[in-house]
């Protein structure tokens, strides 16, 4: 059975506290922290973007997979912050790991669901026997307009998965996708910051699609919520995944390991994929994991993974996600954050 043969994460070192963003805009920090269940978020350095983070996450995945990168026949990156409007991110990443030239490559975009899209297609190609190994990456250096609610959560990170059929760490038991045309969040061509429809992003968007995908995959698999040791939902803030989990009957313990947002922020395309890497870091053979992404526009991809006995040998083969999240952090102030994120208007010669 096809599944994940290698996984890796990358999170930039910089953090900014929600309280420091709120202070800049005269907002009430405790209400934002409580409302979003969010204390701080990751911030990329000026020399980091979706491509650089994808390379580092994939290098970590290769350390676990221990495969020859030349055997990777497809590489996909899902992101809403590809550095180029026209020129693929994937070619740079494929060059960096030496997966060129016998490789199919594409960049995906579907708001926060782009990462799980890339995983879905990579897995499907392996299942179909088209390629021996395929890579799916979710990565973002997401932006929120200054002072907008999104600015408190928009963060940066990447997660990479190598799909294959031999030495599988987590088998893909079943997949399911659920979507509709729901315009809850968007960014038009040439616009710098995304727009959103406020509270409309909740019930008809995130909750409707996440619940639809979860119920759909459980029915397709003939499984129930108690069959899972861990569940990972898309996590635009700390509150939504906990609430949708409760609505579906999951316990807080099932969500705990994969819920990174309170100290990471919303890494968009990398959000649920990064949650999955944190779960795989501590998973035990036989554990069943449910992962449900959500991307505005809107849709959810759902996966059921079954962990194999190969997992324990590779968990320490690369840096763990919790280590990246909890250690070696550097806190920056709002001015430094604004400079790093290109929010300060400069003269043309700069």
């Amino acid at each position: 059975m096809a599944g994940i043969v290698g996984y890796g994460a990358y999170i930039p070192r910089n953090r900014i506290r929600v309280a420091d963003i709120a202070k800049t805009w005269g907002a009430d920090a405790p209400s934002y922290e409580r409302g979003l269940l969010l204390k701080e978020k990751s911030v990329p350095s000026p020399d980091q973007d979706t491509i650089t983070m994808s390379v580092e996450a994939l290098r970590n995945a290769l350390q676990r997979a221990k495969i020859d990168a030349q055997k990777i026949g497809a590489l996909y990156i899902g992101s809403e912050s590809h550095p180029y409007a026209v020129k693929p991110s994937g070619t740079v990443v494929a060059e960096a790991i030496n997966a060129i030239p016998d490789c199919h490559c594409a960049d995906y975009e579907f708001a926060c669901k782009a990462g799980s899209e890339s995983m879905f297609v990579a897995l499907s190609l392996v299942e179909a026997g088209q390629v021996e190994y395929a890579v799916g990456i979710g990565a973002d250096t997401s932006q929120g307009a200054p002072g907008d609610a999104l600015e408190y959560s928009a963060a940066a990170g990447a997660a990479a998965f190598i799909m294959g059929k031999t030495n599988v760490l987590a088998e893909a038991v079943v997949t399911y996708s659920y979507m509709s045309d729901t315009p809850d969040f968007w960014r038009r061509e040439h616009e710098f910051y995304p727009r959103h429809a406020g509270r409309f992003t909740g019930e008809p968007a995130y909750f409707s699609h996440t619940i639809g995908a979860t119920k759909g995959i459980l029915e397709k698999a003939g499984m129930k919520v108690s069959d899972f040791k861990h569940v990972v939902f898309h996590q635009p803030n700390g509150k939504f995944p906990l609430r949708v989990g409760k609505m579906l009957g999951f316990t807080p313990e099932q969500l705990e390991v994969g819920l990174l947002t309170p100290t990471l922020g919303n890494t968009y395309s990398a959000a649920s994929p990064l949650g999955l890497t944190a779960v795989l870091d501590i998973a035990e053979p036989g554990d069943q994991i449910l992962m449900v992404s959500y991307g505005s526009g809107a849709g959810s991809d759902a996966f059921i993974w079954k962990v194999t006995d190969k997992i324990t040998a590779v968990q320490n083969a690369a840096v763990k996600t919790r280590t990246l999240l909890d250690e070696n952090k550097v806190y920056i102030d709002y001015g430094t954050y604004a400079k790093y994120r290109g929010k300060i208007r400069m003269n043309d010669n700069n």
């Binding site: 020399d47 980091q48 973007d49 491509i51 650089t52 580092e56 290098r59 550095p83 740079v92 960096a96």
Partner: peptide
């Protein structure tokens, strides 16, 4: 792996 430089905002990014 990092960005090293870029040829202004319209040019290529060098990694």
């Amino acid at each position: 792996f990092r960005k090293i430089s870029q040829d202004g905002t319209p040019g290529i990014i060098q990694y």
